[in-house]
Write a protein that binds this DNA or RNA. Sequence first.
DNA 1: AAATGATTTTGACCTAAATCAAAGTGTGTC
DNA 2: GACACACTTTGATTTAGGTCAAAATCATTT
Lengths: 178, 178
Amino acid sequence: MFADFEEHELKKISDCFKPKSVKKNNILLHEGSVCKEFYFIYTGCVRTFFIDKNGHEKTRYVMLDNHIGTALTSFITQKPSIECLETLDDTELLAISHSNFFRLNEEMVSWKIFYQRILEMAYSFQNKKIEHLTTLTAKQRYDNVLKENPVLIQRLSNRVLASYLDIREETLSRLKSK
Amino acid sequence: MFADFEEHELKKISDCFKPKSVKKNNILLHEGSVCKEFYFIYTGCVRTFFIDKNGHEKTRYVMLDNHIGTALTSFITQKPSIECLETLDDTELLAISHSNFFRLNEEMVSWKIFYQRILEMAYSFQNKKIEHLTTLTAKQRYDNVLKENPVLIQRLSNRVLASYLDIREETLSRLKSK
DNA sequence: AAATGATTTTGACCTAAATCAAAGTGTGTC
DNA sequence: GACACACTTTGATTTAGGTCAAAATCATTT
């Protein structure tokens, strides 16, 4: 997927991943808890979001089928998370614990490379997001997702999509009727 | 600094870094060029920024004395950069080429760890920036920098500081007189 | 199918910050 | 020391998107 693993490495890796089945609208990580797991989403949908001072949700990242991720800052630092993790659909996923993740990172060069790729992609994604937030209008951000990632518009509720685009639901509703 | 290097590793690493002396207001990387170098700033000041559709500058990151960095997305992908690199003061720096950087990354486990740390920190920094952009007012962002990183307010011109805070110069001027 | 609750839409109004423009204030150079 | 040019401040005006409130639509349970 991201790195070339040897046969014996794959064995070791897959031993670390535990399958889980989680119903829709369940919190995988609460605000204030330390993120202890990294996820591979087999089917379903999980998002990371946080709640601002006005009580509004801000969605940072959405994982659909075959995506990977977690509340990365807390997972890295092992400090309490600002972000929550929540399923948006019934979800089948694989979870690897923090300790196993970083044990693999110490023992396996190919895992280090895998982790580097994850970090590089996560960085680029965030960078692009900042670029869009600071230079595009609400409509342009919507059009961009429509063009680059239309599956999000199909799969997410307007409420969640709006929080992903960093606009209010009312604004999204008006946007769509243009 | 970020990782523990052995004596013989340090030798190898320092051989890769070339010192450069760059006068104030020089462009180290133009928009559209591929970023070929990673920098350690010995003394001085370098920023990364890009120019939006309205011709306004947006400053992503500022490197002061003893900071490291580059136009990271282009450096990673080796695709043309959206960002520019520019000195804001007379600057003494050390530069390592892309090829040497990633040769060290292949040859040296401790360099892999070093690079991981850089990526983790860059990610966290961008994540925090998004959080602030989407939840804080212009005034709150200014106050945050004043509290967390006051040296920026001392060293940067209002024009550059405003573009770092993602506000217009006029707004910053009004903010400061409150 | 009625009832409850969550989404989504529509409308009227408000506000933070941008825009445009002009006047000050520095600061480097010949 | 005066000229040119960059930077900063101040003022008047505009605007994208937020806020608040109410109506309309949809989904779920009994």
